[in-house]
Design a binder for these strands. Structure first.
Lengths: 239, 239
DNA sequence: TACAATATCAATGTATACAATTAAATAATA
DNA sequence: TATTATTTAATTGTATACATTGATATTGTA
């Protein structure tokens, strides 16, 4: 793999892990030594991560790791909601294609099969995870709205806000199954509305569907102190 | 100014102007010679413009200028609509601050004064343009939603989709005045809803407000053939 | 001591040489 | 002639030297 891509991935990972802390200053030379590359691929990585929103530059000199609070994540989920809602609406408005309908229903059928049994084993979780990602991808791409896709791609860069990272948390084991089932039922209703051409309903349902992401992380914990506590990407959200 | 910034601006301008055509391939060396700089700032500019959505790379080698159709622009306006709608809703939900209320009402008052007279002269158009930009900026920043701001910043990069470029078209002179007045009244209603804490209404009004952007460009022309004709950024939209 | 000017240092910006990769063109064979 | 190998050219990826700029430290003076 090209060095510059490796540095981008590695840096992004370390920021998400919290190995590199929010507010920390990133200097080219130090990073170059750290990754055993020249400054060139490092510079490339820094410009990209700035565009992606991971980094900011105060004084147009030296990059800083941007810090997220809990509010930033719920905000990102709201953004995801309105965007995916728009996607669902536009599909309904333009009329769903036969192939898209087929693929969406395939997702629903696979989910139905998964939920025939009881609680999820490891492998079933993975299957559901993939199906969920495919479902959301189909909606977003199916809208044919490039600006929407760009905006969501950017939003997904924000930790914990993507549909993927929402599907499951490591903890809250059995709760995951109930929540997934509920989310899957929402999928059914969304497709139903889209196929019926009920665009406003499709938008509202899809918008609401994003809210399960908030429940996915324990942001509604009993301790109100955690509500505004700054979090580091990668830090355990469930106490 | 730093070379790399100059190249970014210049390239973006030329793409918008249509001097550089959609689909065209951009090679580093050629651009470096064109702008009389080395490949380094050119590479920097290319990575940024790719992130901004101006360029794509098919084979992970060589950049292509992305082409927009009319549909892409109306889609971007829809995106702007749901995002600014969300911003208005969140301000209403969190409760508007006194300072934000003051600044928004200042915009409204300035608009009121402008519309006391008749049609706009050159200077009044500029004043309205600035006020409109300020108004939208206040809503978006006032939401305090960083993800939303990021998404909109990206969306604004798309030609003709930003609030600024929507305010006026060079042609359709007197029509501009009527449309601006209508838009200004919408501003009033949005602020009214926000101050009343009517979040759902604020969202709906702000979302609808974006639709004036579609009317701003003659996309609803009588000629249906233009509806799907590919356009080049910078090409005259009003026949 | 306090302040200002200068000098030193460190970091980023730029240019360029070299390496690696991919596309193109030519040659060779069936 | 068509198709495959091989070579050539062109383009991007990487490293590094040099230039420039902003920050820090030091020195000189009031």
């Amino acid at each position: 793999m090209k060095q510059q891509n490796r540095v981008v991935f590695e840096l992004r990972k370390q920021i998400l892990n919290g190995e590199i802390r929010p507010g920390q200053r990133l200097a080219e030379i130090a990073l170059a030594e750290k990754f055993s590359v020249s400054r060139t691929p490092v510079r490339h990585a820094l410009t990209i991560l700035e565009q992606e929103g991971y980094l900011t530059r105060e004084d147009s000199r030296s990059y800083l790791v941007r810090s997220y609070g809990v509010g930033d994540i719920t905000d990102a989920i709201e953004v995801r909601g309105v965007l995916e809602g728009l996607a669902a609406r536009q599909i309904a408005e333009h009329g769903i294609s036969r192939s898209l309908a087929r693929e969406l229903n395939a997702c629903l059928a696979e989910g139905d099969r998964l939920f025939e049994g009881g609680a999820f084993a490891e492998e079933e979780q993975a299957r559901y995870f993939n199906m969920n990602e495919r479902f959301h991808g189909l909606i977003v791409e199916g809208s044919g709205n490039a600006a929407l896709q760009d905006a969501l791609k950017l939003n997904d860069k924000i930790p914990f806000a993507s549909a993927a990272s929402i599907a499951f948390r490591k903890n809250a084991f059995d709760d995951n199954h109930k929540r997934s089932l509920f989310a899957h039922m929402q999928h059914h209703h969304v497709v139903e509305a889209i196929e019926a051409g009920e665009s406003a309903r499709a938008e509202a349902l899809m918008k609401e569907h994003a809210q399960v992401g908030k429940r996915g992380m324990n942001l509604f914990g009993d301790d109100p102190a955690t509500a505004e506590k700054p979090i580091y990407p990668g830090m355990k959200l469930t106490a």
